[in-house]
Amino acid sequence: MGRTIVITGGTSGIGLGLARHYAQAGDQVVAVGSSEAGGRRLREEVPQAHFVRSDLSSVNQTRDLVERLSAEYPAIDALVLAAFRFNPSRIRTDEGFEHTFALYVLNRWLMAEGLREPMGKAPAPVIVNLCGAGQGGRIHWDDLQLEANYRGATATMQGAKASELLGMAYADERVKYVLYNPVFVATSLHEPFKQPLRGVVRAVSALFAQPVAKAVPPIAALIDRPPAEPLTAWKKSKPIDLAVDAKQARRFEQTVRELASASTG
């Protein structure tokens, strides 16, 4: 058995594409998804991969997932954070968080922090966070859960900025952290929308989005040969510079830590 690759959101889109790529290469692939339908799709398309079902928008289920993965896989070579869902309307999780914040921010922080130990035992460990790095998002410090003025794009852009800050705060010389912005890829972006907008989004995606098959190779190259720097950011296959304030990164990481701790049940 080759390397161990853990992929959240590994049952659709780029996550599924990466699962297929690494399973075919002979690596041990662990694909995490929220639905049994996704698990069936994975088993049909990538029978070699191992499916783990977990609600990644739940802090408590994510903590349980981290404990399970740490126990079953003593060394993890790569962690791909690909789980994402665009929410046109505000959704509140059972634990009281805005859904995009829970999935795009809390889950990714918990996964990266919780798997430090098994990742530190791999020869060349790397975290690849698929996000909107370099898009100019901002943190809404006075309303992190966007209760006052929710917009799907606002929540998404805040999550993208959160990835930049949490990547900076991770700061581990041993485990490399890669922020990767795939830009517009033909995935399931249209699914959360209602008709007729769903049809419009699907049509635009078919015309202009990059196919998953083309999006996978540059990401796989970074997994196979992690950059030397602790934190790097990429837009498609090109490196980009980020203006990330270290003090703000530490402040935001502490805020996320406190929010996650407060919700533990």
Rank of each mutant, 00 (worst) to 15 (best):
L259C: 02
H190W: 10
A148D: 14
C131I: 01
L106A: 11
A25D: 00
K247A: 15
P74M: 04
T154P: 04
F97N: 05
K176N: 03
K238L: 13
A75T: 02
L69C: 10
K235S: 15
R90E: 04
S54C: 15
S237G: 14
R198C: 03
L16T: 05
K121G: 09
A213L: 00
S12Y: 06
Y170V: 04
E44I: 08
F184Y: 14
L79Q: 10
C131W: 03
I14T: 01
A71W: 01
A82P: 03
F101W: 14
L42H: 04
V178N: 06
V200M: 09
L207K: 15
L18R: 01
Q210R: 15
I76H: 08
G114H: 05
W109Q: 15
M157W: 09
P226Y: 07
I14G: 02
S54V: 15
V200E: 01
F84M: 12
M111D: 06
R198F: 01
V185C: 04
F193A: 02
P217W: 02
L144N: 01
D245H: 10
P226M: 09
A31W: 00
L18P: 08
F252T: 06
I14K: 03
D94T: 13
Q28F: 00
D142S: 14
P74Y: 02
S263Y: 08
V128F: 05
M119L: 13
E44G: 09
R53L: 12
W234A: 13
H140K: 06
S57G: 14
K214T: 00
A19G: 10
T154F: 12
T255D: 01
D64S: 15
V126S: 02
A23Y: 01
P88M: 09
T93F: 07
V46K: 00
V185N: 02
A155F: 07
Y170W: 07
L231W: 06
Y104E: 14
K235T: 12
V244A: 07
A233W: 11
V204Y: 09
A25Q: 00
G9F: 11
E253M: 12
L189Y: 08
V29C: 02
D143T: 03
E173L: 05
A160W: 03
K236D: 12
A249N: 08
G136E: 07
D224Q: 01
A82I: 06
I139G: 10
L115I: 04
L16R: 02
L115E: 08
A162M: 10
M111P: 06
Q248E: 15
L166H: 09
A71R: 14
D143M: 12
A209D: 09
A82V: 06
I223Q: 00
L242W: 07
E147H: 11
N60M: 08
E45H: 11
E36Q: 12
A220R: 00
K194E: 12
R53S: 12
Q195L: 14
Y170K: 09
R20C: 04
N107I: 05
D77W: 01
R92K: 12
N149Q: 13
A148G: 07
E253A: 15
S70V: 01
C131L: 02
V185K: 06
G152Q: 11
